[in-house]
């Protein structure tokens, strides 16, 4: 059963990530008084990109390796997360640090591809992406550490379900606020879509990518967004548990959808910040997250 669950994870992530993206686009369009593309548009986009000719504009291995690496790392994350509120065969063997590392690997792959493409705009994008990674990843780490501290184990299950598993506490609420505020940065939406910033640096790190390579990056981005939205539900909404595997999956998906609605609404009602402005906000978020862990250590 727990091996089947791995495949269920992978299939659900691969299948639903573009749909959530489509929902966000639809909501954004509605806020802007537009009809918007059909919710299945992201699937069409991916198919179109995958069917295009592969154009390699920089002759080095890093440029080619970056998209599959980013995709593989986020797919591995998808495979091992405790979807449906229970650990699968993979998730039981890893700890929270593995999860953070895999996510960082995905980010590093984007940076690698950007720097390997030797484009001025990609370089600016990469430097912004680096700053974002360094400043935002701690909030994710603290969220998992909070669970680990409360459940007294670094196992993946404890880290994810520890924060709210034993009832709501002040530390959980503080961490929830930090996570919510960091959410737009996790999923690279306004006001924190700074490293892609179409109008300034033309999608930054991805400027030299097209066709199937770009499709892999896009797909990885969508799955990353789904992961962060799901993680919020898994960590902070324990009340969605039904006790059945299938019921839990459905409940978590419904919760994830709600998080995506929030992301789309925040994203469509904010302009993009500058990186220097964003860094100040990130710093405050790290402090809040640290405070939450501190509260947990103090037993609150």
């Amino acid at each position: 059963m727990s091996i089947v669950a791995i495949f269920i994870n992978i299939i659900l992530f691969l299948l639903l990530a573009p749909l959530f993206d489509g929902v966000m686009r639809k909501i954004t369009a509605r806020v802007q008084s537009r009809q918007g593309p059909p919710v299945v548009q992201p699937y069409y986009d991916l198919f179109k990109l995958l069917g295009k000719e592969r154009i390699v504009s920089a002759r080095n291995w890093a440029f080619r390796l970056a998209p599959p690496t980013a995709f593989a790392s986020i797919l591995t994350v998808a495979a091992l997360v405790p979807f449906g509120s229970r650990l699968n065969a993979l998730g039981g063997r890893v700890d929270a640090i593995t999860l953070v590392y895999l996510l960082t690997l995905g980010g590093v792959a984007v940076l690698l591809g950007a720097l390997a493409s030797r484009n001025t705009f990609a370089a600016i994008g990469a430097s912004r992406e680096t700053v974002t990674m360094v400043m935002v990843e701690p909030v994710l780490a603290m969220t998992l550490i909070l669970g680990a501290v409360r459940a007294k184990s670094f196992g993946l299950g404890s880290a994810v379900f520890g924060a709210a598993g034993a009832g709501t506490s002040p530390s959980t609420l503080v961490m929830m606020a930090a996570y919510l505020l960091a959410l737009q940065a996790f999923v690279a939406k306004q006001p924190f879509d700074i490293s892609e910033a179409e109008i300034e640096i033309l999608e930054g790190p991805f400027i030299e990518y097209s066709g199937p390579d770009y499709a892999l990056f896009r797909y990885a981005m969508m799955m990353k967004q789904m992961f962060y939205a799901w993680l919020f539900v898994a960590v902070f909404a324990p009340f969605l548990r039904t006790g059945f595997y299938a019921g839990d999956i459905l409940a978590q998906l419904a919760g994830t959808l709600v998080v995506f609605v929030v992301i789309a609404l925040v994203g469509s009602t904010n302009p993009r910040l500058r990186i220097d402005q964003a860094v100040k906000i990130y710093a405050v978020l790290i402090l809040i997250a640290l405070g939450a862990v501190g509260l947990a250590v103090a037993g609150m």
Partner: peptide, 16 residues
């Protein structure tokens, strides 16, 4: 101007 600062909702509403 809205579009240039990454605020497409202003863009769309003003053009509507």
């Amino acid at each position: 101007a809205g579009h240039l600062i990454g605020f497409d909702t202003v863009f769309m509403q003003a053009w509507r």
